[in-house]
């Protein structure tokens, strides 16, 4: 009797079920749970933050005597004090959640999508597409990230959309390479050959055999991209190249720095710094758990 591959092997897995499995594995990692919890709080604050803000972020506060209420330490009316320009720190801080998360999520989704499409196409089909992609990424990898972002944002104009665009241009390249090499391994699996022999289309194989097996790597890369995007936006804003029409944490720190109050106005400096550290660390904690998932040799035996 010849061995006939069973139907399941040819049908493969759905993307959804493998994504769910991956998330279940993630929640078994204590550090990742901490990361997910912090992230959830940040997402919640990003949604409701601007409503919680007691004042307009750029409104100049006046004292009772009618003078600009500048650099006031925390008190009952201004829970986190005021800035050198008389703005309420708490209100600016609460608005910052939304900016950070929007930049992080939109850029990471774009990066994840582009690197998956390019990675899969070039890894699966190889040949000409692969050559072009590899040469393109060779060049792209030689471009210093932050300097490129500084120049590009300055030239395009400092808006949130342009910052997201520049971050996407910068980070798809690493993702495409990582996903490509994962696809190269998956392509050679025996069940892919069985499916091919059984007459499955390329589309079917990609959707049900390749993608479900690289979904963790895609998740890892998307998580890291959120962190890189948030860091890049924060760095640009800190350097004074952020979108001047929105309040972001990097920009708050830039204002504190350039007005020379970095060392004294702790109430102005600590909240945005701490929020950035918590947010980026929580993403790295989640990313680390995916890393352990994707590298079986790191798993505990």
């Amino acid at each position: 009797m010849t061995q006939v591959p069973d139907q399941g092997a040819i049908r493969g897995r759905s993307l959804f079920s493998s994504a769910r499995d991956s998330f279940r594995l993630l929640m078994e990692d204590n550090f990742a749970v901490v990361g997910v919890a912090i992230l959830a709080i940040f997402v919640l604050l990003a949604i409701i933050g601007p409503w919680l803000a007691p004042y307009e972020p750029f409104k100049a506060m006046m004292t009772e005597t009618g003078r600009l209420n500048r650099l006031s330490p925390p008190n009952a009316t201004h829970l986190l004090g005021t800035t050198a320009f008389g703005n309420d720190v708490l209100s600016q801080f609460l608005h910052g959640f939304r900016v950070a998360l929007i930049v992080g999520l939109v850029a990471a989704l774009a990066v994840g999508f582009i690197s998956t499409v390019f990675g899969v196409l070039s890894g699966y089909f190889g040949g000409y597409v692969d050559d072009v992609l590899m040469r393109l990424t060779d060049i792209a990898l030689s471009i210093p990230t932050l300097p490129f972002a500084i120049v590009a944002v300055a030239l395009l104009g400092p808006s949130i959309e342009n910052i997201i665009l520049v971050i996407t241009i910068l980070f798809w390249r690493n993702g495409a390479r990582i996903i490509r090499s994962a696809v190269l391994t998956e392509r050679e699996r025996i069940y892919v050959k069985w499916a091919r022999a059984a007459g499955a289309s390329h589309f079917h194989i990609i959707m049900r055999h390749i993608l479900p097996n690289i979904v963790r790597i895609v998740f890892l890369w998307v998580t890291m991209s959120v962190a890189f995007a948030i860091l890049t936006e924060a760095s640009l804003s800190f350097l004074g190249l952020g979108d001047p029409t929105v309040v972001s944490w990097g920009q708050m720190l830039n204002t504190a720095f350039s007005s020379g109050n970095l060392r004294t106005a702790w109430w102005w400096v600590v909240p945005p710094s701490l929020a950035l550290v918590l947010l980026v660390s929580s993403l790295y904690l989640i990313g680390r758990a995916y890393e352990e998932q994707t590298n079986p040799r790191l798993r505990r035996r």
Partner: peptide, 22 residues
């Protein structure tokens, strides 16, 4: 060790700088 390294990795470099300065 892993926890601390991951958290420190998440500190933006300008925040490291500000903390050291202060």
């Amino acid at each position: 060790g892993i926890f601390l390294a991951t958290v420190i990795r998440g500190v933006p470099n300008f925040v490291i700088g500000i903390a050291l300065l202060t």
